[in-house]
Design a protein around this nucleic acid. Structure first.
Length: 428
RNA sequence: GGAGAGGUGGCUGAGCGGCCGAAAGCGGCGGUCUUGAAAACCGUUGAAGGGCGACCUUCCGGGGGUUCGAAUCCCUCCCUCUCCGCCA
């Protein structure tokens, strides 16, 4: 959520900044609502003040034994007036809140201006692309038919966009998770957390998935009482919400968390996209990095967090590149985002494997996550997160980059300790 | 699932329908004292919103109701704890 005060005082500038990401701020609607809000709020508060002072007078008169019938008569019609004003104000504020909740974050100044994917700026590349003396297979060809990957049985059990991994491949997948958790936990100083995979709507509002992106979520059938649960689309939701409605002491910052969770996405609107293989699934594993920091440090931390994610690819010796997403391509809540894209020989393309973002105070304002600043006053923290990494896609990258002409897959050196020394899997 | 107890400020914990944004203690901050620190003593200390401002409004788990007036009474939901049952 943007700062409502800024929206009131600097509407044109905000609208301009948002136009860079292709968002049209309904300026006229907003200022009209805001104008009415101001009048109505003032009036409501005046009525409340009057009621409070009259009620107090009645109390005092009663206490001193005076007759209060005159005072009561005076106040008789006030209740309805006040109730009406309060109801109107509430409706108006709900409308404003709804509008506000649908406004995306303002891109940082350093974000390249552009319309979409094609305008993202490549910052650097790491590693050299593997060369093969044969036509490299994609991960489906490498895993299907030899018992490692089974999409048919997955679709029988569940449907499209699910997969079943077996044997050494399932183990390699698990090894990746352990490796990533250990790297970030032991070497990068993140605290490992285990969190719920089902969350309430407040949590999703806090990180910005609701109200705008409900269609991308899986909701559990309402059990009849209370609000429904949602399956998390990313660990970012439960982990960042650890700080919801919390004021942390300055010394406690930065808070660094790493969590491994499954992620569930409906992938609405991506029909026909990446239908082959396990690139785009309804269920996948991810190791997520989350940091809660002082505002003045967040951009420095974004670089560090991105570097932490890059380390995973470097240790796995997977070639990748880093993009700075342009204003037209960054996510709803983000002020700035770096994407890591790994090289997939089977597609002869770089594909997204991590997304590292600084949300500044956008999420913090929604969830009221604050820290006690040196002045003693609570201030909003800045929140960041990044995949470190998407496990399913990392597995795909390992399979495709480490294949040999027999369709076997070499186990990256750093994973071998997690595989009981196993050095090669698969083949037929 | 059954029975009971409870949710109040950073924490613990009081709170006859009006003098309660809320006692007291702890913690925090400032000061006195001290070479310095501790102790002691004095003062101060919740959050959100509106207004240039004096100031005003809202908030005692969430929502609804009764009342001129609700932390306090009623309804409802959620959560926590204890016991029993069941269960990985």
């Amino acid at each position: 959520m943007l700062d409502p005060h800024r929206l009131r005082t600097d509407l044109e500038q905000v609208a301009k900044a948002l136009s860079h990401r292709g968002f049209v701020l309904p300026v006229a609607v907003f200022s009209e609502l805001e104008g009415r809000r101001k009048v109505l709020q003032t009036r409501t508060q005046e009525l409340q003040q009057l009621r409070n002072s009259r009620s107090k007078a009645i109390g005092q008169a009663k206490a001193s034994g005076q007759d209060v019938s005159a005072l009561l008569a005076e106040v008789a019609t006030m209740g309805d007036q006040l109730k009406q004003a309060e109801t109107e104000l509430e409706a108006l504020q709900a409308e404003l809140q709804g509008l506000l909740a649908g406004i995306p974050n303002i891109p940082a100044d350093s974000v390249p201006v552009g319309k979409g994917e094609e305008d993202n700026v490549e910052l650097r590349r790491w590693g050299s692309l593997p060369t093969f003396a044969f036509e490299p297979r994609d991960h489906v060809a490498l895993g299907d038919g030899n018992g490692l990957l089974d999409f048919e049985v997955a679709s029988k059990i569940s449907g499209a966009r699910f997969s079943v991994m077996k044997g050494e491949l399932a183990r390699l997948h698990r090894a990746l998770i352990q490796f990533m958790l250990d790297l970030h936990g032991r070497e990068h100083g993140y605290t490992e957390v285990y969190v719920p995979y089902l969350v309430n709507s407040d949590s999703l509002r806090g990180t910005g998935q609701l109200p705008k992106f409900e269609a991308e979520l899986f909701a559990l059938r309402d059990t009849g009482q209370g609000a429904p649960y949602y399956l998390i689309p990313t660990a970012e939701v439960p982990v960042t919400n650890l700080l919801r409605d919390v004021i942390v002491e300055a010394e406690a910052l930065p808070l660094k968390f790493v969590a491994h969770t499954p992620c569930f996405r409906s992938e609405a609107g991506s029909y026909g996209k990446d239908t082959r293989g396990m690139i785009r699934q309804h269920q996948f594993e991810k190791v997520e990095l989350v940091q809660i920091v002082r505002p003045e440090q967040s951009y420095q931390v974004l670089e560090q967090l991105t570097a932490d994610a890059e380390t995973v690819l470097q240790r796995l010796e997977l070639p990748y590149r880093v993009l700075s997403l342009c204003t037209g391509d960054i996510g709803f809540s983000a002020a700035k985002t770096y994407d890591l894209e790994v090289w997939l020989p089977g597609q002869q393309k770089y594909r997204e494997i991590s997304s590292c973002s600084n949300f500044e105070d956008f999420q913090a304002r929604r969830m009221l996550a604050r820290w006690r600043s040196p002045g003693g006053k609570p201030e909003l923290v800045h929140t960041l997160n990044g995949s470190g990494l998407a496990v399913g896609r990392t597995l795909v990258a390992v399979m495709e980059n480490y294949q040999d002409d027999g369709g076997r897959i070499a186990v990256p050196e750093v994973l071998q300790p997690y595989m009981a020394g196993c050095r090669v899997i698969g083949g037929r």
